[in-house]
Amino acid sequence: MEPAGANTNRVSGEFPDTSFFAIGFSHHRTILSKIKDTNERIFYIRRCADEKYSHEELIASIARDDYHHQGSLPNNFLQTLPAEEQAFRAISTFKDEYLLDYINVEELGIRDKQDADERMLENAIIHNIKNFILTFGKDFAFVRNQYHLDAFGEDQYIDLLFFNRELNCLVAVELKTGKFKPSYLGQLQSYLSILDGFERKPHENPSIGLILCKDMNKSFVDYVIQDYAKPMGVATYKTSKDMSAELRKALPNIDDLRKLLDGSDDNGWKFYPSVTTPSAFS
């Protein structure tokens, strides 16, 4: 059995004939010229076919180094999810780092990144929720922000709540603008307990939690998270100001991504504005 943080995409195996013939020549040329490792090439071939990537999206995926970020977040999924297959699927769903290139701290009126609070970050994500889902991955549907949990007379609020069709479970995301703290895990575990006890449908899998913070010591997080009973992972994020000029240049134009998202659901997921809060796009 692989460790909880293992990258499950780095596997050898049968050559993906179907995926190979499903993508264009320009995709193959870029993969061959930029990627040397065979397993990594297979990963991007499959990614292009599964996600129906344009050539620009492939270049952006390589620039983000998705191969090494996919499935490498600190987590306890193997210990806490009832089925091993479900655990590995969850591991491969989340990255250890997300690039929120559409969030500009200057536009939020934040002069010092350290002064940014979670609510300002949350509002920026809500106003760009389609782009956030594209960053997050396919099969995510947005439920709402500040999701109210009312149990035992205690009011609690989840920053962002999603449903993942592939995992068939609710996904609670907590936003933290500073470095990871162990206390965040306790808070998230309580949210997951209430979700599973009061919100989860009988046919759904156990809810999963993700802490999205600015920085973390991965070895430390991977060690302490194993003692928690609810399935959780911890990832970091970067905003536009944190990215190098080279990476910003490689990422596709956000207006082009909006047109793609508004025009079709070819990427394999759907956005449901009807389940957002009325003020989400005000």
Rank of each mutant, 00 (worst) to 15 (best):
K52Y: 09
R248E: 07
Y228L: 07
I158Y: 02
D66Q: 09
H69E: 05
V173I: 14
A60Q: 08
K214F: 10
V224T: 08
E51F: 06
T80Y: 01
K34G: 02
A22S: 14
G263C: 06
L261C: 03
F180D: 00
R200C: 05
I42N: 02
D242T: 03
D50Q: 13
I211W: 03
R89V: 08
K201A: 13
H68N: 15
E166K: 14
N123I: 03
L195Q: 04
A151M: 07
Y191R: 04
D101L: 02
S26M: 14
Q114E: 13
D265T: 14
N168E: 09
D117H: 08
I91N: 06
G268F: 09
Y98P: 00
L212S: 01
A4Y: 05
K36R: 13
A60F: 07
N217T: 11
T239N: 04
P82W: 08
L185N: 00
N7W: 02
A229P: 04
M1G: 13
K138G: 07
Y147E: 05
R248N: 10
I194V: 15
I62N: 01
E107M: 10
A6T: 11
V11I: 15
E246G: 06
L257R: 11
K238I: 01
N253I: 11
D101N: 13
D266K: 11
A172Y: 02
R200H: 05
N217R: 08
T236C: 11
P182E: 11
A250S: 15
Q156N: 12
D150H: 13
T18Q: 14
N104A: 05
A229E: 15
A6V: 09
R111Y: 08
D227G: 12
R258E: 14
I129A: 09
V275I: 15
I59E: 14
H28F: 06
N145C: 07
R47D: 04
S19Q: 04
F25R: 15
L81A: 09
Y184A: 09
P3T: 12
S183N: 14
R119G: 01
I23M: 00
E199A: 07
H68D: 10
L167Q: 03
A6Q: 06
F43A: 04
K95D: 09
F77Y: 12
K259A: 13
A245I: 12
A83K: 15
N145T: 10
N128I: 04
L192Y: 01
N217Y: 06
A6Y: 13
R29H: 12
L99W: 07
Y102T: 01
